[in-house]
Amino acid sequence: MISRLEPTLGRLLISEPFLMDPNFKRSVILITEHQEEGTVGFILNHSSTLSLKDVIPGLPEANFPVYLGGPVETDTIHFLHRCPDLISDGQEVVKGIYWGGNFETLKVLIQNHQIDEDDIKFFIGYSGWGQSQLNMEMKTNTWIVSDQFHPDVVFSNNEENLWREVIINLGPKYAHVSNFPQDPNLN
């Protein structure tokens, strides 16, 4: 598979079907930062067994799911949202989707039940690539890059089918890839 798009801010990285790295198997990653020094993104479809209340003390009713954003700095929490009118200081990644923001305000919004699970997604850790590392992976066809997605994809809780749906959305050239088995040895 050859992707014509370059990875950049606001695009999706979609793992090729036979990538067996457990950190990135069948991953869909939103790129939130892309500079010469490196790239940062969050895996949208790898859930953890944790809820936000498990990782942030003082939020006993915060039942928001927490996703595994990637294998880097897994002792940190990050969030994507589409509520810039409620959460200030977030960085717009792609039209209508923001990374981070005022965490103290967010905690108050959560405590007062003023933010909906469909408008925010939390992550432990992130995915990161050093200078030219992602370019090397692109040359070995590890990733497909897409800018064709609806913002709802970012906030989807359907992690089981998200990879497949994003692949199908790329069009007929890639649709057949969505049916590849997860383990080709079982075919």
Rank of each mutant, 00 (worst) to 15 (best):
M1R: 12
S3M: 07
P7L: 05
G10E: 02
L12D: 15
I14A: 09
S15Y: 11
P17G: 00
P17V: 03
M20L: 09
D21W: 01
P22C: 02
P22L: 10
K25I: 10
I29C: 04
I29S: 05
T32A: 12
Q35L: 13
E36Y: 07
E36A: 06
E37V: 05
V40S: 13
V40D: 10
V40H: 14
G41H: 13
F42M: 14
I43H: 09
I43R: 05
L44A: 07
L44V: 07
H46D: 00
H46T: 00
T49H: 15
L50F: 13
S51K: 15
D54T: 09
D54K: 08
D54Y: 06
V55N: 13
P57L: 11
P57V: 10
G58K: 10
L59Y: 13
P60L: 04
E61M: 11
E61L: 12
A62Q: 06
N63R: 01
F64Y: 08
P65D: 07
V66F: 09
V66I: 03
Y67P: 01
V72N: 08
E73M: 09
T74Q: 15
T74Y: 05
D75E: 15
D75H: 15
D75G: 14
I77L: 15
I77A: 15
L80T: 12
L80K: 06
H81E: 15
R82L: 09
C83M: 14
C83G: 08
L86I: 12
I87D: 06
S88K: 09
G90Y: 01
E92D: 08
V93W: 15
V93F: 11
I97C: 12
I97W: 03
W99I: 00
W99N: 02
N102Y: 04
F103A: 08
F103T: 12
F103P: 02
E104Y: 15
T105Q: 14
L106R: 12
K107M: 15
I110R: 12
Q111T: 12
N112G: 05
N112E: 15
Q114M: 05
D116V: 00
E117R: 01
D118N: 06
F122N: 03
F123K: 12
I124E: 05
G125C: 05
G125E: 10
Y126A: 04
S127Y: 10
G130E: 15
Q131G: 02
S132H: 12
L134Q: 00
L134W: 05
L134P: 01
M136H: 08
M136W: 02
E137G: 01
M138S: 06
T140G: 03
W143A: 00
I144A: 00
V145K: 05
Q148T: 11
H150G: 09
V153C: 09
V154N: 06
V154F: 11
F155Y: 07
N157A: 11
N157H: 14
N157S: 02
E159G: 04
E160N: 13
E160Y: 07
L162I: 11
L162T: 05
E165D: 10
E165T: 08
I167K: 01
I168G: 01
N169P: 00
N169I: 00
P172E: 09
P172H: 08
K173Q: 13
A175P: 03
H176Q: 08
V177D: 06
V177Q: 04
S178V: 02
F180T: 00
P181A: 13
P181V: 08
P181M: 13
Q182P: 03
Q182V: 13
D183C: 03
D183M: 12
D183Y: 13
P184A: 02
P184F: 01
N185C: 05
L186M: 10
L186W: 00
N187K: 03
